[in-house]
Design a protein around this nucleic acid. Structure first.
Length: 190
DNA sequence: GTTGCGATAGTCT
DNA sequence: GACTATCGCAACG
C-alpha cells in the first residue's frame, strides 16, 4: 500500500515547496494510513497567522527545531490538529495537514469516528483525520522518519492537478493563497 | 442542501 | 481574561 519513508532531507526546504510536495504522500499511524490531499503553509516570520510568529514558547519550540517532526496542538479546547515541521533548524515553518484520502485501516478509522456517516467524513478535516488515525497531543515532537507515525511515498505514483486557495478559518492574513489541494479529490474539506 | 451557533481547555497577555 | 489553523447538531428551505 505504501512505499519508503521520506528522508530528513525531503523536509529541509522552504514551507511553500513542502506544502505542494506533501500532496500525494502517505501519512501512516499504526495500521491506519491516508494520502495527503489538502495542506496549508504556515511559513512563520512575516506570516502573522503562524503560531511561530509569536516566537519560541513551550508550544511552538518544535517548529524552530529540525524538520521532519510532528507539531500537534489543541484547537478550540477539544480538537487536535497536526502539522509537519519543515525548513532548516532555526527557520520556523510548518505545514498543516487538512485532509486525507483513507487507504488503509478503514475499519479502525470507522471505529474511532462513530459520528462519521460516510467514509468521506472520516478524514475530510484537520481534526477529523487526527481522530481517525489516532494522533493525540502525546505525538507532539514525534520523528516522522522513524517510529509509529511516519510519512511515506505512495507505492504507485499518480499525476494530479494542484489548486491553490486562501487558508481556512483564519482571522489574520486570511487572503494569502497558501492552501494547496488535489483538484477534484472527494476527501478535500469543505 | 445550507446556515448559525455552542462546546471546551490550553496558551499567551 | 481573551482568544482559538474546528466540528457536529439543530433549524430551516
Amino acid at each position: 500500500m505504501t512505499g519508503k519513508i521520506l528522508p530528513r532531507d525531503f523536509y529541509s526546504r522552504n514551507t511553500l515547496t513542502l506544502a505542494r510536495e506533501l500532496l500525494g504522500k502517505v501519512l501512516v499511524k499504526g495500521e491506519t494510513a491516508g494520502v495527503i490531499v489538502e495542506t496549508e503553509a504556515y511559513p512563520g516570520g512575516e506570516d502573522l497567522a503562524s503560531h511561530s510568529a509569536a516566537g519560541i514558547t513551550s508550544r511552538t519550540k518544535v517548529i524552530f527545531g529540525p524538520p521532519g517532526h510532528a507539531y500537534v496542538y489543541l484547537c478550540y479546547g477539544m480538537h487536535v490538529c497536526m502539522n509537519i515541521v519543515v525548513d532548516q533548524e532555526g527557520s520556523p515553518g510548518c505545514v498543516l495537514i487538512r485532509a486525507l484520502e483513507p487507504v488503509g485501516g478503514l475499519e479502525v478509522m470507522r471505529g474511532r469516528r462513530q459520528r462519521a456517516r460516510t467514509d468521506r467524513e472520516l478524514t475530510s478535516g484537520p481534526a477529523k483525520l487526527t481522530q481517525a488515525l489516532g494522533i493525540v497531543l502525546d505525538d507532539y515532537g514525534a520523528d516522522l522518519t522513524r517510529g509509529g507515525l511516519t510519512v511515506r511515498s505512495p507505492r504507485h505514483h499518480q499525476n494530479f492537478a494542484i489548486e491553490v486557495t486562501p487558508r481556512v478559518g483564519l482571522r489574520k492574513c486570511e487572503d494569502s493563497p497558501l492552501r494547496f489541494i488535489i483538484a477534484g479529490n472527494e476527501f478535500v474539506s469543505g
